[in-house]
Amino acid sequence: MAANPAYQWLSALLCYPQADLIAALPEFQAALDEWPALSAQRSELQALLDYLHSHDLIELQENYVATFDRNRSHALYLFEHVHGEDRDRGSAMVDLLQEYQRHGFTLGNDELPDYLPALLEFLAHIDTAHAQKLLGDAVHVIEHIRVKLAKNHSPYAAVLAAAVALSPVTPQPLIEPPVRDMDEAMETFGPDVSGIEPLLKPAIDTIQFYPKSDFQAACKGASA
């Protein structure tokens, strides 16, 4: 039983649509009707459930791929929006993976730790206070993706809006990361143990969902 089922609910809705998701739509509807935590986003989430209910599975899958896999501005990999191709992304991945491991949470072989549905699933099974802290760290990136989805009138924006609403932290504007040439980075720093990413920096104490310098700049801009 999930400690924080709302996170698990949102995680499932953000995953690639499969037949079992469609079969479970009545359960999602019941949860939306009953959970006060989601009441502020009720109309938008209802529109997403209606969308999933009214389209063929193949069409849903094609739209999902077009939305998230073929449009990098909508990518559900959080660190892509923070670090781009910079080598700090690999360090942040390691930090987050270690956070999962400390709580006995295991990712599938084909999953990356910064995949938003994976993070939400993790938050569903840990202490509520710690889940709120991690969500507060990530909320700036989640809101950044939500804005992009909303501009393209995607019904999935409702899921990210609900995640933002559950956070105790008000999101700040996200500064777009610089694009680093990965071949150049490999030549400069050498490969990591996997041979895929450039050599990682030593792990830091906090997970880099949001660079401190960028956060401070955004805060100054918001208060000016």
Results as ranks from 00 to 15, higher is better:
residue 4 N to T: 13
residue 7 Y to E: 03
residue 8 Q to E: 08
residue 10 L to C: 11
residue 11 S to L: 10
residue 13 L to N: 13
residue 14 L to S: 04
residue 16 Y to T: 10
residue 23 A to Y: 04
residue 25 L to N: 01
residue 28 F to R: 03
residue 33 D to F: 03
residue 33 D to K: 11
residue 33 D to M: 06
residue 34 E to Y: 04
residue 34 E to W: 03
residue 35 W to P: 00
residue 39 S to W: 04
residue 43 S to D: 15
residue 44 E to R: 09
residue 47 A to E: 12
residue 51 Y to A: 05
residue 53 H to N: 13
residue 59 E to A: 09
residue 60 L to G: 04
residue 61 Q to W: 07
residue 62 E to I: 12
residue 62 E to N: 14
residue 63 N to D: 15
residue 65 V to S: 11
residue 65 V to A: 09
residue 73 S to L: 10
residue 76 L to W: 00
residue 85 E to F: 10
residue 86 D to L: 08
residue 91 S to H: 06
residue 93 M to G: 07
residue 94 V to E: 12
residue 101 Q to V: 14
residue 101 Q to A: 09
residue 102 R to G: 00
residue 106 T to V: 14
residue 116 L to C: 00
residue 116 L to K: 01
residue 118 A to I: 10
residue 119 L to W: 02
residue 123 L to S: 03
residue 124 A to V: 09
residue 124 A to D: 02
residue 125 H to G: 05
residue 126 I to P: 00
residue 127 D to R: 02
residue 129 A to V: 12
residue 130 H to F: 00
residue 131 A to T: 03
residue 135 L to I: 10
residue 135 L to E: 01
residue 137 D to I: 02
residue 142 I to H: 01
residue 145 I to A: 03
residue 149 L to K: 07
residue 151 K to W: 04
residue 156 Y to T: 13
residue 157 A to M: 07
residue 157 A to K: 07
residue 163 A to T: 15
residue 164 V to T: 14
residue 165 A to D: 15
residue 165 A to M: 04
residue 169 V to A: 00
residue 171 P to S: 05
residue 171 P to L: 11
residue 174 L to A: 02
residue 174 L to T: 10
residue 175 I to R: 07
residue 179 V to C: 05
residue 181 D to G: 08
residue 181 D to W: 05
residue 184 E to P: 00
residue 187 E to F: 05
residue 193 V to R: 10
residue 193 V to Y: 07
residue 194 S to G: 11
residue 195 G to E: 10
residue 197 E to N: 13
residue 198 P to G: 13
residue 207 I to R: 02
residue 209 F to G: 01
residue 210 Y to K: 06
residue 213 S to H: 09
residue 214 D to R: 11
residue 219 C to K: 14
residue 223 S to P: 00
residue 224 A to Y: 05
